[in-house]
């Protein structure tokens, strides 16, 4: 063994050294190191879990936001539709009212025209009759002589009956 360059005493010493190192390591370092590693592992796991949770929350928030936007869009569309319907109804009502008023004005105007026409006709009739009577009076006055007038008066007296009572 000495020919190969291997020193048995050195090997033993190295072995003892190694065993000592192992003993010391095991006694003083292994536990803290193991707990450190475990702690690190735990922390990493926790970190991972937190990351997953945060991602899930983010996704949830995104979904909520998306849903909210869609809901708002739908509500907006509903409100717009309703507003359009109401505007249409108001427009129709105004139009109907305008038509009704126009019809009423037309009826009233026609009635007034009819009334004025009747009044004019009445006035014309009265005027024509009055003028006619005046013409007849004038004509009779011109045509009838005094004798004829006397005869007419005689006839009237004769035809008045036997007596006229004024009491």
């Amino acid at each position: 063994m000495e020919n190969l360059g291997i020193d048995p005493k050195l090997i033993v010493a190295q072995l003892i050294n190694f065993l000592l190192f192992l003993f010391v390591f095991k006694k003083f370092l292994a536990k803290p190191f193991a707990s450190f590693v475990a702690k690190e592992k735990k922390e990493q796991e926790e970190h991972q879990a937190a990351l997953i949770k945060s991602r899930q929350m983010e996704e949830r928030i995104e979904k909520q936001e998306k849903d909210f936007k869609e809901k708002m869009k739908k509500e907006q569309a509903t409100i717009l539709d309703e507003a359009k319907r109401e505007a249409e109804a108001v427009r129709k009502q105004l139009l109907d009212e305008a038509h009704a008023e126009a019809a009423e004005v037309r009826t009233r105007s026609l009635k007034q025209l009819e009334q004025e026409k009747a009044e004019l006709e009445e006035a014309a009739k009265e005027h024509i009759t009055r003028v006619g009577m005046l013409l007849v009076q004038e004509a009779l006055d011109d045509v009838l002589t005094d004798d004829m007038k006397k005869k007419i008066t005689d006839n009237i007296i004769k035809n008045s009956g036997k007596r006229i009572s004024l009491s």
């Binding site: 009076q137 009779l140 006055d141 006397k150 007419i152 005689d154 007296i157 004769k158 007596r163 009572s165």
Partner: peptide, 29 residues
């Protein structure tokens, strides 16, 4: 004659009869 006829026609005129002329009447009374 007319006056007599009128007095006969209207008894009340026997007391007093007032006469007026209005040519616009044309004829009659």
């Amino acid at each position: 004659s007319q006056e007599t006829a009128i007095r006969a026609l209207i008894p009340e005129s026997k007391k007093e009869l007032n006469q007026e002329v209005d040519t616009s009447l044309i004829a009659g009374m």
